[in-house]
């Protein structure tokens, strides 16, 4: 994929749906039924990407908001975007009208991001038929659905 630090992205809707709950973003690609999640810095980057922020703009915002941002943050962001695009969650947005405007909401988001030095991690679940059948009270571990109980 032709990607640079200035590229902008859009959610691959309508087949991709998402919601952020209590700092965790959950996504479904309805075209294949796969489920994804990420939290912490990943959820913040996702939110900024949906507002058409480029990797460079996101890195700038993160660096301005906290002291523990690693020097290779821009590379981490690009690697995360690659995972998102590889899974058809995000698509390149070539519309010149798509621009990012920093708002109070995006600044508030950054303040709730948690540790910045942990690279974003995408969790992917492809066996949704089984995962959806899990009893979310009795067959899951302490983290709750969709993590199955080990015993």
């Amino acid at each position: 994929m032709n990607m640079d630090f200035q590229s902008r992205y859009s959610v691959n809707s309508p087949s991709v749906v998402y919601e952020t709950i209590d700092g965790e973003t959950i996504l479904m690609n309805l075209a294949n039924g796969f489920y994804f999640s990420f939290d912490g810095i990943g959820a913040v980057i996702w939110e900024l990407l949906t507002q058409h922020a480029s990797p460079k703009e996101i890195a700038g915002l993160l660096q301005n908001s906290a002291a523990d941002v690693p020097v290779n943050v821009q590379e981490n962001i690009v690697a995360f975007i690659e995972q998102l695009t590889d899974n058809n969650l995000l698509i390149l947005d070539t519309d010149p009208a798509s621009v990012f405007v920093s708002t109070e909401q995006s600044n508030a988001l950054l303040s709730q991001a948690g540790p910045m030095n942990i690279p974003p991690k995408l969790f992917k679940y492809t066996d949704m038929k089984d995962v959806l059948l899990l009893d979310p009270i009795h067959e899951v571990d302490k983290r709750g659905w969709p993590e199955p109980r080990k015993d």
């Binding site: 087949s15 479904m28 899951v140 709750g144 659905w145």
Partner: peptide
């Protein structure tokens, strides 16, 4: 966390139904 998991499961099932 358990209640959140129940919510997430319902969300996934509903999204598939809407689709």
């Amino acid at each position: 966390p358990m209640l959140k998991g129940i919510y997430k499961q319902a969300w996934c099932k509903n999204q598939q139904l809407f689709f």
